[in-house]
């Protein structure tokens, strides 16, 4: 049963190869570059928000405590945060920082600015291995 399913899948692949580059999951080097540009555009927006671009009510900005987003440790989330009393994803801690050191209004989880902040924070931490839960 299992084998026959696998064989059918393989046969499908061969057929797709023969049919040429019209499959939905195939992409080109140009696609990669464009998508990366799209990503970096959001990273740049996050960089801007992180460095004083966020409308902080008390002038305090993220980079004042986290130059180059260091000591934010995106690779360790979700993890227990004692400031929130439970295991949380990164965006919840970003909101904690927005509400406390910055004394400003929190963002919705899917707010484009929250995405941008996370994109920048992750970008500055690229290459570091995942260690969920680590304090």
């Amino acid at each position: 049963m299992k084998r026959s399913k696998s064989n059918r899948w393989r046969a499908g692949c061969v057929a797709a190869l023969a049919l040429g580059p019209v499959q939905a999951d195939e992409f080109t080097q140009q696609d990669l570059e464009r998508w990366n540009q799209e990503f970096m555009e959001v990273v740049r927006e996050g960089d801007r928000l992180f460095h004083g671009g966020f409308p902080s009510k008390n002038t305090v900005s993220c980079d004042q405590c986290h130059p180059n987003a260091s000591n934010t440790h995106p690779e360790t989330y979700p993890k227990f945060q004692k400031q929130l009393g439970e295991v949380v994803p990164l965006w919840r801690m970003i909101n904690w920082c927005i509400q406390n050191p910055l004394q400003s209004e929190p963002l919705a989880a899917d707010d484009a600015r929250m995405t941008a902040l996370q994109a920048y924070i992750h970008w500055e931490r690229r290459g570091v291995k995942l260690e969920p839960g680590k304090h």
Partner: peptide, 10 residues
């Protein structure tokens, strides 16, 4: 406090 520079991975 500032982070220690070694905590910037790049």
């Amino acid at each position: 406090p500032w982070p220690y520079p070694n905590s910037y991975a790049q």
